[in-house]
């Protein structure tokens, strides 16, 4: 059990990194990665929402949509549920966990229906349908662990890239590359570095 979870978790963080390998959630990746602490706040919110969204949409899909043969409604139902859920969580946090609200506050509404959040939900279902043995053994908990891994991977990518961008602030960039162009080049190089993790996880947990 622990082995299956470790494989799912580290696959999510490294080999299937959401930002750098699957190119999901690029807008927050480029938008809020200028400073390390804002990048961390955003990542924490993403982890939180990803796990929560999986926990809620999984039973809805299994007991409501699949039972009635309505899988084609997944997209609209998931968006609806996740958006409402994030709003609800924001209200609850504001009332009861003020420090957490202050830390996540501005980022929570930003990621209500972020592609990475919706992406992780669909990817979990896809893996189940594709017959991934680790997922088939633990459908629900495996999905949760995968969402956690995806969130942590997002955080790792954000942290690394925020560091890169902070260094770039002090560099003299040629005029035609200033701003977004050099950021995208740096992002692609960071992404290439993550392709080096191919096959690592399978080897680690044989």
């Amino acid at each position: 059990m622990a082995k299956a979870f470790m494989i799912i978790l580290f696959t999510g963080i490294l080999t299937e990194n959401f930002v750098l390998r699957q190119f999901l959630g690029i807008c927050p990746f480029l938008g809020v990665s200028k400073k390390r602490n804002t990048a961390m706040g955003m990542s924490a919110a993403v982890i939180f929402v990803m796990v929560l969204a999986t926990a809620v949409t999984f039973p809805i899909n299994k007991y409501l949509l699949e039972k009635n043969g309505l899988e084609y409604l997944q997209t609209i139902v998931f968006i609806l549920v996740i958006a409402a859920l994030v709003q609800l969580v924001e209200i609850v946090l504001k009332k009861y966990v003020k420090p957490l609200y202050n830390a996540l506050g501005i980022y929570l509404p930003l990621i209500t229906t972020n592609c990475a959040v919706l992406g992780v939900v669909f990817l979990n279902l896809e893996k189940l349908a594709g017959g991934d043995p680790n997922f088939l053994a633990y459908p629900f908990s495996g999905s949760l662990v995968n969402s956690l891994g995806a969130g942590l991977g997002f955080m790792l990518a954000m942290f690394l890239f925020a560091g890169v961008r902070e260094r770039m602030e002090n560099c003299e960039v040629p005029k035609f590359l200033q701003g977004l162009p050099i950021t995208l080049i740096a992002a692609s190089l960071t992404s290439v570095s993550f392709f080096g993790f191919d096959g690592l996880v399978e080897g680690l947990f044989k």
Binding site: N68, L70, V77, L80, A84, K94, K95, Y96
Partner: peptide
């Protein structure tokens, strides 16, 4: 099946909307 889809999506929307309305009323800061 078309009716069922409509009913399910509107029911989820209604529940979510009502939940949010109630929450914002009772947990207003």
């Amino acid at each position: 099946p078309i009716l069922l889809a409509v009913v399910i999506v509107s029911a989820i929307g209604l529940i979510a909307g009502l939940g949010l309305a109630v929450a914002s009323k009772f947990m207003a800061v």
